[in-house]
Simulated scan of single mutants.
Amino acid sequence: MPKARRFDYTLPFKLGKLARSLQADIMMTTLFFADIIGALSTYMYKPKALISWEAITGRLRFHQKKMYQLTSGRFDMVVAVSNSIWPYIIKDRGQDPQKICTIYYGVDLRKFAPAPPHRNRAHFIFGTAARLVYQKGHRYLLEAIPEVVKEYPHARWELAGDGEKLEELRQLVAQLQIESYVTFLGRRDDVPDLLAHWDAFVLPSLWEGFPNVLLEAMARSRPVIATDVEGSGELVVPEETGLLVEKKNSQALAQAMKALLANPDHAETWGAAGRKRVEDHFSVGKQVMEFEELYLSFV
């Protein structure tokens, strides 16, 4: 449904008219504009359920919070992608906790099939795949590298992704004199292949909703090192599928990477355990089934 401007005030009427013509039972929205348009449209036509899918944590502007709080009563359910974002949904969106549930992201287990470990390779490669923006915390990963290579000069890092921080991060690599250890791969569309190529995955994010890329890395049987932010603690089991560290803490990241390098067998055992955890709890089939059950509960 095209819009004429950033917030097209005719869209709630158009959406309500469309929903009425379809006699829609379920309306599902995600992100601020769609959520508010969907909520306002229910004054024209109220389906059996208006459901919002929430994946973002606490980055709303004042007027966005107010709009959510004014329309929170129109939502029959808000689906959170992790338990850890419930407080944000309750506080910033003003949502009744009785109308919140969690359905985790799911990963395609065939597309992200288990990959064999790399044995007897000259380099141990840590990889990360994320937009090069402040949120993803690449600076703290790079600042950890000098300490790691003092003891483990065979370690290497590959960063997949593009973004506004690219030049700043390149300058930091030069400043830290770690050019021979770090490779910027740019934007890539072959993440499943990259995950198989890497020995371990690192995600130094400052905040998340639920980091889907960790799921993908674990599905590919890779151990993960991640900051203990929203969602990560519900996915990573410390010293079983990987390690969790404090955010904005380069020293903690360095210690975690050195711990994995000191015990390379963990790359294989933690990777296998991560794959099993994804199969048991985070498959796309499980996600679809839980959404189906939610929809059926309203019709």
Rank of each mutant, 00 (worst) to 15 (best):
F282I: 03
I89Y: 05
F13V: 05
A272F: 09
I26D: 07
V213G: 01
K286A: 11
A219Q: 07
L142V: 00
M218A: 04
R170M: 05
D92W: 02
K276I: 06
A160R: 02
I51T: 05
H123N: 15
G285W: 07
Q135N: 01
G285H: 05
R277W: 06
V288S: 04
L70N: 09
D228E: 14
S82D: 06
R6A: 14
E168F: 06
G274K: 03
G242F: 11
Q177S: 14
L15F: 12
A55K: 14
H123G: 13
F62A: 15
R121N: 04
I36C: 08
T128V: 00
K48L: 15
W207K: 11
T71E: 00
M77P: 13
S52W: 05
A256R: 07
D76K: 07
D108W: 02
L176N: 04
W207T: 14
K65Y: 15
K65G: 13
Q69M: 13
E216F: 03
L166P: 00
H154T: 14
R61S: 14
T71C: 12
A24M: 02
S52L: 09
I225W: 00
R5Q: 13
R170P: 00
F75D: 13
A55Q: 15
G94A: 13
A267W: 11
A200F: 03
Y105K: 05
H123R: 05
R59I: 13
N83S: 10
Q255M: 00
V278Y: 06
G16V: 07
A256W: 04
E268N: 11
V107F: 03
E292G: 07
Y134A: 01
D228A: 14
Y88K: 13
L132E: 09
E151W: 06
T30S: 15
P114S: 08
I36L: 12
H123E: 10
R277L: 09
N249Y: 08
A200H: 03
T241P: 03
V79W: 03
F298T: 11
G274E: 08
R275G: 08
L40Y: 11
N120A: 01
G274S: 11
M289E: 15
T128P: 01
A254Q: 00
L60H: 12
T241V: 05
D8G: 07
E293F: 03
H197Q: 11
D92M: 05
A272T: 14
M28S: 08
R275D: 10
G58Y: 12
D96A: 14
Q64E: 15
V284S: 04
P87W: 10
L203I: 07
E230L: 07
F282C: 09
I125N: 04
P211Y: 13
V148M: 01
G16S: 03
A160M: 01
N83W: 10
Y295F: 02
I85E: 04
M28W: 00
A200E: 02
D199L: 06
M77V: 11
T183M: 10
E292Q: 03
V173K: 08
G38N: 12
S52P: 04
E158G: 02
R59V: 15
Y43L: 14
E164G: 03
I125K: 10
Y68V: 05
A267H: 07
V79R: 12
Y181A: 15
Y45T: 02
F126C: 01
V278P: 08
A174G: 08
T71M: 12
H138Y: 09
L166T: 05
H281P: 06
S41Q: 02
T183A: 09
K111W: 06
